[in-house]
Design a protein around this nucleic acid. Structure first.
Lengths: 346, 346
DNA sequence: GTGAAAGCGCTAACAG
DNA sequence: CTGTTAGCGCTTTCAC
């Protein structure tokens, strides 16, 4: 009486073939005559058959699912990455399962265990905790293919790194070439490691240009976004104000733009601005804000390729590393140093 | 030789109990002696046993997974909602599977089918296509518990609606009470239905205050965000400019702030601004932008409750509707109408 | 190329 | 309270 689930047995019966043949037909295995294939397909259409995923996983030991643990889903870059990877992996027959780590080691570990329990075929991770031993141990002792994104972790897993240093050097030189000497660097505090590399690259570029480490102009936004506004206002109104800003983080950038407008400084006439990261509004802002952007498509491509290669290929091959480059979008927010300052310095 | 997976049989053997008892112990069923429970737990710890999710799903017909289809993962509100729901559902033993519809009916349908195929225990949806018959048919013919978020869909499923109209009326009156008469409403074009309701509520509030439908001040941002900037500049520099803006959409708000600064209009001295939606920067902007915010926690709570009730309880109970309220955050961006205009009107 | 049969690891029904 | 047994729906040998 109860309308039983349509299973492969029903399909096979209607098609007049055996259970095994029906299965082979569905999975596009070699040894199937085109006639059988057609008959099965017709039966499927008639019955509206949908295979049971659970049964498939149990039997084949392939879940066709990839676990994705990001530090937070609300980070715009991560959200875009997730969306793009989901689309790409779906096309390959995989489903992406999203979990957030929230920089909490316990939570992250629980997520990894969940991935294992649910038999993920692979995983993509941005662990917030780069040092927590339990997580590193878990990863290294796990057989599961995995790709780590933009984290300096000592691991046997494959890694996709963003090439921060050269990118930051490049924009620093860009500003130096425009005559700027007082350049401020503002970075948000969240992504610890990448920012450390950014700061270093910035200082190196300055030093290479004969400018002593400008400690007074490197700011880590340790507290709230509100304070960034005050800080920038302070800088602009203070003695020997910066003529250019390199800004990392969406909220940081907003605060800088806001502060600039508040003190009546014009962009790029009075201050030049380059953003690390390219949020939507950067392009449409008046004037448009020059930005360093990591190519989402590149990251997605490299990550998915690495992962699928590992899943399908040799699991004992040694760890791979891919390096993703940044693009610099030169836009109107970037201009030559104001004359007064140029004279003052030289 | 190959280190076989530890299964429940191994656990039972080590604990010296039967397979059935081990299963019952794990699942916390009634009829288990505390001794058995302990022995099993010890065996689990020793062996490092993790149950096979696939086998459980196949046998129990419960996947402990909820499908979540949002129109896009990159929408900040949705990202926050997802993150909060994920946490809440995880605590209840469920995993949230995220898929994006991208306002593409085919894609949405494919996602729904995937949810069915993978035996989701329930789903949470924001269909972009409120009219597509195939999707409505699929939903109505499906037995799967589901909650629809903020969509005016005729469906048998449970629904959580955001109470847009009263909220918009309220902020319109807020501005009217401050003496504003020329109030512009700018909405992004994406969420068709909610915005239709917002516009209507706005016009009603104006009419109730004896002000004719201000068609010249209601703008749907049909094209790019760049045009919003131009449009607002046009309005502010034109004849009889608005003294207040009600703005919906993060990018729209950014454009308005940008345009306001560009023409040198001060907030709130020259123009007042209220945002529909409360992005991070609204609070930290100088001055802070007054905003209508929907309480994420409320939505999450109502949605999850509705869903779990449906999953655990009576599936044939008639459809439920929950209504979520908005909070108005009065902030400094909102002030009395400028004297010149007040005189001009009265 | 195809059919028959053997489980994947677990829960649920039943008998004790 | 516990052990035994029968599958869940499918893929994958293994014969033929």
């Amino acid at each position: 009486m109860s309308k039983k689930r349509v299973d492969l047995r029903d399909v096979a019966a209607l098609a007049g073939v055996s259970l095994g043949s029906a299965s082979r037909a569905i999975n596009g295995v070699e040894n199937v005559s085109s006639e059988t294939r057609e008959r099965v397909q017709r039966a499927i259409d008639i019955l509206g058959y949908r295979p049971s995923h659970a049964a498939r996983v149990l039997r084949s030991r392939l879940s066709k699912t990839i676990g994705c643990m990001l530090s937070e889903a609300t980070n715009p870059l991560y959200a875009r990455l997730f969306q793009a990877m989901e689309a790409r992996l779906r096309a390959e027959g995989y489903v992406l399962l999203l979990a957030t780590g929230l920089n909490d080691a316990d939570r992250e570990l629980e997520n990894l265990r969940l991935f294992a329990e649910r038999g993920m075929d692979g995983m993509i991770l941005t662990p917030g905790n780069e040092r927590d031993r339990r997580i590193l141990d878990f990863l290294d002792s796990s057989e599961m293919p995995a790709v780590i994104l933009d984290r300096d972790i000592e691991t046997k897993k494959d890694v996709v790194m963003f090439n921060h240093a050269p990118a930051v050097k490049r924009i620093t030189r860009e500003l130096l070439d425009l005559g700027h000497r007082r350049i401020a660097l503002l970075v948000s505090h969240v992504d610890v490691r990448p920012n450390r590399r950014r700061i270093e690259a910035f200082k190196t570029a300055m030093r290479e240009h004969g400018i002593a480490s400008p400690n007074d102009l490197v700011r880590l936004q340790t507290t709230s976004t509100a304070s960034t506004f005050d800080e920038v206002v302070g800088l602009l109104k203070g003695q020997d104000p910066p003529t250019a800003f390199i800004v990392q983080g969406t909220n940081t950038l907003l605060s800088v733009l806001n502060a600039t407008a508040a003190v009546g400084a014009r962009i790029p006439d009075d201050v030049s601005i380059i953003s690390i990261g390219d949020p939507d509004f950067a392009r449409t802002h008046v004037p448009p804000i020059a930005a360093l952007k990591v190519k989402t498509e590149d990251i997605v491509e490299r990550t998915v390729d690495l992962l699928l290669t590992r899943i399908k290929g040799d699991r004992s091959a040694r760890p791979q590393r891919a390096l993703v480059q940044f693009d610099f979008e030169r836009r109107a927010s970037c201009g030559p140093v104001p004359q007064s300052h140029a004279r003052g310095i030289q």
